Simulated assay, not measured.
Amino acid sequence: MIDREQFRQILDNGVWHQNASLIQLLGLCPLLAVTTTLVNGVMLSLATIIVMAVANVAVASLRNLIPHEIRIPVFILVVAALVTVVDLIFNAYFHELYLVLGIFIPLIVTNCIVLARVEAFANKNPPLQSLLDGVFMGIGLLWTLALLGGLRELIGGGTLFAGIDMVFPGVHGLQLLPADYPGFLLAVLPPGAFILLGLLIAWKNWAEARAAARKPDAGSDHRSPLPVADGV
């Protein structure tokens, strides 16, 4: 079982305090390459959440049976099997979106976010806690990619939810800016992604600093963070 405090700690760490994109800076390749639209970012995030959650449960359940010396190859094998299933599902049910996301679905296998949580958390904790860690770490990735993708899409083309018809046929995206809006090309190019990501990181640091300044005991933080694996 899991108590309320442990649940809250896993939730806070995954969604905010140890956000994989804004704090750990893991998985930058899909983060910057896929977020040209909100839909692309959200759908890749959902695929990653499924893989992270199931991989964490599988590794946590088998952690006492996996020899320490070969744990990394076994972890990769588990993740690769799950990514293959997700890849086939996207190809079968969201074929147009599958073509758009391209290689970035199979590349979830090597995504540092997935491997980091499997190694740093699931390999040391029970299945329930590992499931929650995978889900909440994925939700942290989800809101980051959704916000970054939405900003890039809006600034770059004046639209929002472009490509939603690839997921829900018959539903169309929104044209929020005038139809003659010329677009801002930098926003949809890699340099624009880096700039917006930097601004998001700065905003998060500012929000945390402001929240800490409001606390009477701002200088003391007794929170014991969950383990984080190094990597980019």
Rank of each mutant, 00 (worst) to 15 (best):
F121D: 04
A122F: 02
A122Y: 00
A122N: 00
N123I: 04
K124Q: 13
N125V: 09
N125A: 13
N125Y: 14
N125T: 12
N125M: 10
P126A: 13
P126H: 07
P126D: 09
P126Q: 06
L128W: 11
S130L: 09
L131I: 00
L132M: 10
L132Y: 14
D133K: 03
D133W: 02
G134H: 02
V135D: 03
V135S: 05
F136W: 10
M137F: 15
M137N: 13
G138Q: 01
I139K: 00
I139T: 01
L141E: 11
L141G: 06
L142C: 04
L142I: 08
W143N: 03
W143G: 01
T144L: 00
L145P: 04
A146I: 03
L147D: 05
L147Q: 08
L148P: 01
L148T: 01
G149Y: 00
G149P: 00
G150S: 00
G150C: 01
L151Y: 01
R152A: 05
E153L: 06
E153M: 07
L154K: 02
I155K: 15
I155T: 14
I155C: 12
I155R: 06
I155D: 06
G156A: 12
G157E: 15
G157Q: 13
L160Y: 06
L160A: 12
L160T: 09
F161H: 07
F161R: 06
I164E: 02
D165H: 08
D165P: 01
M166C: 05
V167W: 09
V167M: 10
F168Y: 15
F168C: 08
P169N: 06
G170I: 06
V171E: 07
H172P: 05
H172Q: 11
H172W: 11
H172T: 12
G173C: 09
L174E: 07
L174F: 15
Q175R: 15
Q175A: 14
L176W: 02
L177Y: 03
P178L: 08
P178Q: 07
P178W: 06
P178D: 07
A179G: 15
A179S: 15
D180L: 12
Y181V: 12
G183R: 04
L186F: 08
V188L: 13
L189M: 10
L189H: 11
L189Q: 13
P190C: 07
P190N: 12
P190M: 09
P190T: 03
P191I: 03
P191A: 10
P191Y: 05
G192E: 02
F194K: 10
I195Y: 02
L196E: 09
L197I: 12
G198A: 14
L199R: 07
L200P: 03
L200H: 09
I201T: 00
I201V: 14
A202L: 12
W203D: 14
K204T: 08
N205L: 13
N205F: 05
W206D: 09
W206H: 14
W206Y: 13
A207K: 15
A207N: 15
